[in-house]
């Protein structure tokens, strides 16, 4: 196993009290695997990703274990972390415009990564930068290296950010909603690019998204999160066909276009919405966080947190699985 997260917890101290954004997350990413981390707003999926890369602000208290190739990332000092973050582990964010430096040419930003993580000399770095742009599908690389982020379109910026993340040949790419801000035809291009690069470079991919369709198209494994906790994980096809957690089932039923008869316009079956709204994170439920919105809950669900039961290639944390 390449990345192993155990009982990860992140608590933010805010003026209005402690926010338990991640509340005991377990997940694994194997070498060369594509794993989708899916959930709605406030589920803790992005915070989990940032905690793995140790990118959270000082008001976050992180506990638990993040083991990367046998070393505990959370216990490392910043100097030991530096060659790993951006080196062995690359990161791609949702908003390339916010993640790229607006006053530096793209070439210089790729170069920064190469200086930090490789021993290449200046000429070799330039060759490598051109090669990277070509790899991510940016044409006219020599011109593009000298351009600034604002001269790139949204899709091209995301490609540039992927090039920077790939500069040091990472073994794992963490991608936080990399296509959410993009149009659907550009999303299609970027997702295919990520999968092709994964194959060519043999890296693993942890993809955070709110879109179950994106997961279905790209991820062999899926981890479903709700209120800072893992509901279930397993092979995507199995989880979507036979969810083991009441929340996963409810989420799939709320999606348009999942019914047996898609393509029937307004005559299609009604969606089954999930009643209520996302839970507050300042006072975690002693039981299952989904209980107030769950249609198959029983008294036990409100008081006892269901353990994450691992069965064959799947895991789930739901008292009500037998009733689904």
């Amino acid at each position: 196993m390449t990345l192993q997260v155990r009982d990860l917890r992140v608590v933010f101290q805010t003026k209005s009290g402690a926010i338990h954004a991640v509340d005991g997350v377990d997940l694994d990413v194997g070498a060369g695997e594509v794993v989708g981390l899916v959930g709605e707003s406030g589920s803790g999926k992005s915070v989990t990703l940032r905690a793995i890369a140790r990118l959270l602000h000082a008001n976050a208290t992180v506990s638990g274990g993040v083991s990367w190739r046998g070393a505990d990332l959370l216990a490392m000092d910043e100097a030991a972390m530096r060659p790993i973050r951006g080196g062995q582990i690359g990161i791609v964010f949702q908003e390339p415009m916010a993640a790229l430096n607006p006053v530096l040419p793209i070439g210089l930003q790729i170069d920064e990564s190469l200086v930090a993580h490789t021993d290449l000399d200046r000429a070799a770095r330039r060759r490598r930068a051109l090669e990277l742009l070509d790899q991510v599908g940016i044409a006219a690389g020599a011109t593009r290296l000298g351009q600034y982020p604002h001269e790139f379109s949204g899709g091209m910026r995301q490609r540039a950010m992927i090039a920077i993340a790939l500069a040091a040949n990472p073994a794992l790419l963490l991608a936080d909603e990399p296509t959410t801000a993009l149009d659907v035809t550009i999303q299609d291009q970027i997702l295919r690019l990520l999968l092709r690069l994964k194959d060519e470079l043999g890296m693993a991919l942890l993809l955070v998204t709110h879109d179950l369709g994106v997961v279905a198209q790209t991820c062999e494994k899926v981890v479903v999160m709700y209120a800072g906790r893992v509901c279930e994980w397993g092979p995507t096809a199995d989880v979507f066909a036979r969810p083991n957690h009441a929340y996963t089932q409810a989420l799939l039923r709320a999606m348009p276009g999942t019914g047996a008869m898609p393509g029937t316009g307004a005559t299609a079956e009604t969606l089954i919405p999930i009643p209520g709204m996302a839970p507050r994170l300042d006072a975690p439920s002693p039981g299952c966080a989904f209980t107030p919105r769950c249609t198959v809950s029983e008294p036990l669900c409100a008081t006892a947190r269901p353990p994450l039961v691992v069965e064959h290639a799947r895991a789930f944390a739901c008292h009500g699985r037998g009733r689904l």
């Binding site: 035809t185 295919r192 999968l195 092709r196 279905a216 198209q217 995507t236 999606m255 276009g257 999942t258």
Partner: peptide, 16 residues
């Protein structure tokens, strides 16, 4: 280009 809910792995040329 619309992501389908039927699991498959995107391969080959993009939709456009």
């Amino acid at each position: 280009a619309v992501p389908q809910m039927t699991p498959r792995e995107l391969r080959g040329e993009p939709a456009v």
